[in-house]
Every structure is written in C-alpha cells, then in structure tokens.
Design a protein around this nucleic acid. Structure first.
Lengths: 173, 173
DNA sequence: TATCAGTGCTTAGGGAGCTAACTATTGGGT
DNA sequence: ACCCAATAGTTAGCTCCCTAAGCACTGATA
C-alpha cells in the first residue's frame, strides 16, 4: 500500500529544456517546452497520488469515479453510458464493474428494454462506501489546492482549461 | 494504436461539486473541490495524450523519459540512478530497460566496479531515435501550450508548482 | 420477412506502474 | 578475518487502461 516515494522526481528544469533543444539545433521556446514537460510530470504525480488517496477506501480512481457517476444519476446507468461519461472504453468499464461487483458495491441487472444491454446499479453498500469516504475525500481535495487564493484558483482554472484544449495538439492527427 | 476518443469526458462542473458536497452535508468549498477535480481529470488526459504522442515513435512516456535521461548523462547510467531520477521504482526500470533492450535502443553492461551493478547504455540506434523524434516532439509540446501568452505561462508555472506541493495532501499520512 | 449493419458487452492480450520477496554482492563493525 | 545488514537488480503478481476481436441482439432496409 505504501507507494513509491519520490523526492521530487520528474520536475524538469529550464536548463534541461534549453540543452535538449540546443542539442538538436531546434528553435523551440524553452519556456513553452518547460511548461508542457512540467504539466506532464504533474499529471503523472497527481495520478499516482489519486490512487493512493482512493486506495485508502479500498477503491481506485476509476472505481470511485464510476461509483460517484452512478450516484449522480440515480444509482442506475448502462455500461455504455458510464464509458461515455467517464471517458474510458467500454472494456475498461467492464473491468471496473467486475471489481466493484466482486465487492458488492454495484450489481448488474439485465436491461428490460434492450436484450443486449445491462444496467449497473449502485447497491446500498456502494452508497454507504461513498458516504463514508466523503468527508475525508473532500477535505483532502480542498487542502490540495489550499496553497492558492480564491482569485488564483480562478485564474488557474482558466489557464488549465485552455491548456487542456491544447492537449489535442499532442494526440491529434 | 488509435486510442479511445473522448469528447470531453471528465470535465466536472461546479454544479456537480456543489451537489456532491451538499448531499453529505459537508462544508467544503465547491470551487476548491472543482479545481482539484479538474486537475485530476486533466492529469489523466495528459497522461493518455502523452502515450499517444510517444506511441508514434514506437515509445511510451516511460521509455522516452528513460532514453532522454540517459542522453542527458552521457548515455550511461545504472538502473538505480535511473529509478531515482525518473521517480519510478527499480522494478519499473527493469521493465522499461527490458523493452528498450529488445528494440536495441539501449544495452546492459555489467558494472566494472560493483559486482551487483549494471550499467544501461544508450546505443547508436537509441540516440538516432531521439534525434528523429525531436523536431516533432518539441513542436507538439510547444503547441500544447500555445493557447497561453508568455506571461500567462509564467503565472501557470507558479500556480502549478504550488499545487504540486499540495499534492502530498492527497497522498500523505 | 429476411438480412445485415450497427450497437452492447465481454474476452483476450499488451504495456505501465506498483509492492513484496528473492538472489547476489558489498562493506562496515566486531 | 568474518558476519550480517544494506544495496543492486530481477521476478512474480496485482491494478489500471488500452485495442482488437468475438458474440448477442436490434432495427432499418430491400
């Protein structure tokens, strides 16, 4: 359960960026590259921290998101809908539901109006689990951004959204 | 190779945050929770986009980082050092090196001054690969943050660093 | 009405990362 | 000089997520 401890690993420096760009005789802006690299490093760290966080409650990030999404929709949703709203593949939903079902936090029922379909249901145990973890979960989420003032958070939200829009530049084509 | 396409999946809304907090009668600040949730969502997306990006060159994020780190250190480093500087476990380095060695981008040599140790060496093919992908890599990194002005990037860098410092709040204890 | 493309879900297989446990070697304390 | 804890690396086994391929069912079209 104790995850790999990182002193401050992948925090690339401006110097590194500059050196790499120079090595290949490119003309990229080192600061821009640095921002992108730092963001990718931060993304990885947040992901790992999230797993540790949810691991405390016997869940993973994916499983928590599925449970929370289910609760937000009256505790009942098809795997396809879940895949869409969580932004993962249907195969991934199958795996997440398998795990959650094994622990009795959700249940599968055949759909009444589509012979192919399933419905995933949040069980009482699942709802309990969400209720139990909520206080600590939200408290930790809050303290994660406690280093920023309200105004700074607003700015950050704006800048982050614009970068997220730029992510497709990495993946696109 | 074509990854799962997401319209705009896990972009939680302020309303959702508010509703969840209210459901459990908590007193958390919805905006703060929103920032944390958005950041986690963004982290996941960036991670996936990174895999797509490096997948184009027959690499993964981890493998690229290992190659780049190697090059930054004269093309020679021990697995333990790599684990430390990449911020991953030694077991993960073993796996990454296995893969890179299979493709001839890296080679293992027994250490001369420590009978237990290995040295991982960047091969000519490995250096070539880095050189080939550099132009596109840096161009895409740059365009990822192209939506921000230089000043905004500086602000973002500062805010991000302060949040990264707060990540331990999620994982700590 | 018979067919067939599309949709819903699962299975199979792969890569990344982790922890825990094991082997081999080193090096400091007695 | 010897022993034993610490260190280097690997292996085994887990979770998450993915793609690709398969099966079951639906529904529009000829």
């Amino acid at each position: 359960m104790t995850p790999h401890r990182q002193t401050d690993p992948a925090a690339p420096s401006l110097e590194q960026a500059r050196r790499q760009i120079a090595r290949y005789g490119l003309t990229a802006d080192p600061q821009a590259v640095l921002v992108a690299a730092r963001l990718m490093a931060a993304g990885a760290r947040i992901g790992q921290a999230g797993e540790v966080h949810f691991g405390r409650f016997g869940l993973s990030t994916g499983r928590y998101r599925l449970l929370a999404d289910l609760e937000d929709h009256g505790g009942e949703k098809s795997p396809s809908q879940l895949a869409t709203s969580l932004g993962v593949s249907r195969a991934t939903v199958t795996g997440l539901v398998d795990g959650l079902e094994r622990e009795g936090l959700v249940a599968r029922r055949p759909s009444t109006d589509d012979g192919r379909g399933n419905v995933v249901i949040l069980t009482a145990r699942g709802a309990d689990r969400l209720r139990e973890l909520a206080p600590e979960h939200f408290a930790r989420m809050q303290s994660m951004v406690a280093g920023l003032s309200v105004e700074e958070r607003t700015v950050f939200l704006d800048l982050l959204a614009r970068i997220v829009a730029g992510i497709e530049a990495l993946a696109e084509d």
